[in-house]
Design a protein around this nucleic acid. Structure first.
Length: 699
DNA sequence: ACAAGCAGTTTTTTT
DNA sequence: AACTGCTTGT
């Protein structure tokens, strides 16, 4: 008989030794969640109910009761969210939580895979592909699977990439995915199936992993190597998951796996804020958590501390038409506040002028810029406003939309680093080689084949083997690569060296707009200075691309904290005193892509809900009445279908008039530069009140 | 055979 | 601003 050891049960009931006053800082429900003992628990936390606060105190409680920080895993949706929470927890605990493991599912899986890569047939220096890289890989294969006869009907690389992705993170068969989302491509099923199989083996052969691989291969590792699972899961004494409503099937399985030894898992989420269905998020995960984790308890947080009653009224109204939801009713003890305003503007320019003018007014009333946000459905919706804000010297940061590391010229530089890191990475080689004059897809393919045969000395070149048209530039490339390969340069120095080599190429390739791109190379060098390890830098940039305009913020460090512009998706979890939701148009929110399906429309509705619930004190929803489209010219736009039926008692309809013009004529007055004002339409435009009434607000 | 240049189309949201 | 397909040039 084997000897039996008994481990002392953790003492959860003990009064925490530290100085944190848990019951004073949290309401009874929050306290119950933060001090939860053992076993699975679902925390349903409505918008603004102190979800982050609860998680922060949860971490503090665990550590205070003696759990080692490195035995806590805090999985969040973005890295920003993780750092924010750990910083706050660290404030409560005098820094005692620095060793809590946390981050996104993808980043957490990456650390596991780096350690155990060889067990699933991968080298440990594998490269992480972002969505665009992965589409490039697929495109290489696509050429082999298409013929002239297919014409335009065969799916584009981006679509193909989305197909693979949705198969894998939902765990569905190709046939199902095609039938539900791309019925027009059902005829290609057999070819697509083969192509996707080849995609998988191609990645393995080259040491490449896409985002979905990080999750799926971790699961596969756990399945095929039970001792690895046991090893990893025993280090996860407490698993905390934020934004559980936005996890996909693979992530739910990971949560189950990670908690399989200790069984202590707390998931926090709000079904009404699930907005990542397009990425495979499965609302079913949160709705059926209590079935999947036997005996799971449920705690509901319904006391909203963020918004005024008027804003919550609109939020609740919006939600009444949603289909699937958990029962929950938000309430607040805050005062009624102003009704949210619906402001139609004659056109984009007026909308931008109105928003910037209001922002300046609020600032004069003492609201700091960084307590205000402008939200929109699409990244490009804010271009006009950005111009206007620049003109008025209003500093802003933009979240969502284009990322620095997704810009073509940055990807070029990064491709050189990837080649140095993993010389088997053919996608990176393709990019690097095709920058050279005289080298296109075919030649680049041939050179890559030659390189792969060269074996251990990847950056040596035999100049006799190549055509005179491009040997010289090829030699120069290899010389630069060898120079870096054989040195001990820091990542920043490597980028500096590469930039010097790349600058003339950039002038050639992007001859029209290279001056705009040039400063970005310096930015990149600056970012690289934070890293001492090239591989870590590449992984980090792949998993957490840098927001393009976030760079400008660092330069302004000592100036006024900037206004926030953000896509609704990127604003998840944030709150602001004043919120403007712009471009609230039918076809934008809801997106034109979603009108075909109830499920998709529901998600757009929740998106509106998320936008509305970001606001604490004031909410303005605006849209232009006239839009421009490239081939259709000007046409009359409709406001979002979610807003037209909202009673006026909840959403106040307003009109915008140009000062000095009694009857504003939309088309003729557009170019005037005088300041506009807003009036409430129901009180009659002649005696219209100035909005907003800025006096006596609870700032 | 292959690269480069041109013209026309198309753009959701993100790890 | 990027992607695709077509045409021209080497």
């Amino acid at each position: 008989m084997a000897r039996q050891f008994v481990i002392q049960r953790e003492e959860h009931q003990a009064v925490p030794s530290g100085s944190v006053d848990f019951s004073g800082e949290l309401n009874p429900r929050q306290l119950e969640a933060a001090t939860w003992g053992a076993g699975p628990v679902l925390v349903v936390a409505g918008a603004g109910t102190g979800k982050t606060r609860t998680l922060v105190y949860r971490v503090a409680w665990l550590i205070d009761t003696g759990v080692l920080p490195e035995h806590i895993v805090l999985l969040t949706f973005t890295r920003r969210a993780a750092t924010q929470m750990l910083t706050r927890a660290s404030g409560l605990l005098d820094g005692r939580c620095s060793r809590v493991r946390g981050g996104t599912f993808h980043a957490f899986c990456l650390t596991i895979l780096k350690k155990y890569a060889s067990k699933i047939g991968y080298p440990s220096n594998f490269t992480v592909l972002d969505a665009a890289d992965s589409a490039d890989v697929i495109d290489i294969l696509r050429a082999r699977y298409t013929s002239k006869a297919d014409g335009k009907r065969f799916p584009k690389k981006r679509t193909l990439q989305q197909m693979v992705s949705s198969m894998r993170n939902r765990g569905l068969a190709l046939a199902d995915v095609l039938e539900s989302t791309w019925p027009q491509f059902v005829e290609f099923e057999e070819r697509l199936g083969k192509m996707f199989d080849e995609y998988a083996s191609y990645k393995q052969a080259q040491g490449l992993m896409d985002y979905d691989d990080l999750l799926v291969l971790t699961l596969k590792l756990f399945q095929s190597q039970p001792q690895v699972l046991r090893e990893v899961a025993s280090m996860c004494r407490h698993v905390l998951v934020d934004e559980y409503q936005d996890t996909n099937r693979a992530q739910a399985l990971l949560v189950r796996a990670l908690s399989s030894v200790h069984g202590n898992v707390m998931v926090v989420g709000d079904d009404a804020q699930s907005i990542y269905r397009f990425r495979g998020a499965d609302l079913g995960n949160i709705l059926s958590f209590r079935d999947e984790f036997a005996a799971a308890a449920e705690i509901k947080l319904e006391h909203n501390y963020r918004s005024t009653q008027s804003i919550l009224d609109l939020a609740n109204e919006v939600l009444t038409s949603a289909h699937r939801r958990l029962d929950k009713q938000l309430f607040t003890e805050r005062s009624k506040g102003d009704r949210p305003a619906l402001v139609p503007a004659p056109d984009d320019r007026f909308e931008s002028r109105f928003v910037s003018q209001m922002i300046l007014q609020f600032r004069e009333q003492g609201v700091p810029l960084n307590q205000m946000a402008v939200l929109f459905r699409n990244g490009q919706s804010s271009y006009d406003l950005e111009v206007e804000l620049n003109r008025r010297n209003v500093p802003f940061v933009k979240y969502g939309g284009l990322k620095l590391s997704e810009a073509a010229h940055i990807k070029d530089i990064l491709a050189h680093l990837k080649v140095l890191e993993n010389p088997r990475d053919a996608v990176a080689w393709n990019r690097v080689l095709q920058l050279l004059e005289g080298i296109g897809p075919k030649t680049s393919g041939r050179i890559i084949e030659w390189i792969s045969k060269a074996g251990d000395t990847p950056f040596q070149i035999d100049n006799g083997a190549f055509s005179a048209a491009y040997v010289d530039s090829l030699m120069r490339l290899f010389q630069v690569l060898r120079g870096i390969h054989g040195s001990t340069m820091t990542p920043a120095d490597q980028i500096e060296t590469l930039s010097e080599y790349y600058a003339p190429i950039m002038r050639n390739v992007y001859s029209e707009d290279y001056p705009k791109r040039e400063p970005d190379l310096d930015h990149l060098t600056g970012i690289a200075a934070r890293f001492s390890d090239r591989a870590a830098m590449l992984d980090s940039l792949a998993l957490d691309p840098i927001e393009l305009s976030a760079i400008n913020v660092e330069e302004l460090e000592n100036d006024e904290p900037p206004l926030v512009l953000s896509t609704i998706h990127s604003a998840k979890g944030l709150e602001f005193k004043v919120v403007f939701l712009i471009q609230a148009l039918d076809g934008v929110l809801p997106s034109a892509y979603s009108v075909g399906s109830t499920e998709a429309l529901d998600e757009e509705l929740r998106l509106l809900y998320v936008a509305v619930t970001r606001a604490e004190d004031h909410l303005f929803i605006t849209y232009p009445m006239i839009q421009f489209r490239r081939y259709e010219g000007q046409y009359f736009a409709k406001p979002s279908r979610f807003l037209v039926d909202v009673p006026e008692s909840i959403l106040e309809p307003c009109t915008l008039v140009e000062s000095g013009s009694p009857a504003p004529d939309v088309l003729e007055e557009r170019s005037k530069e005088s300041s506009s004002m807003i009036e409430s339409s129901e009180s009659g435009s002649a005696a219209g009140e100035m909005l907003p009434p800025l006096d006596g607000l609870p700032f």
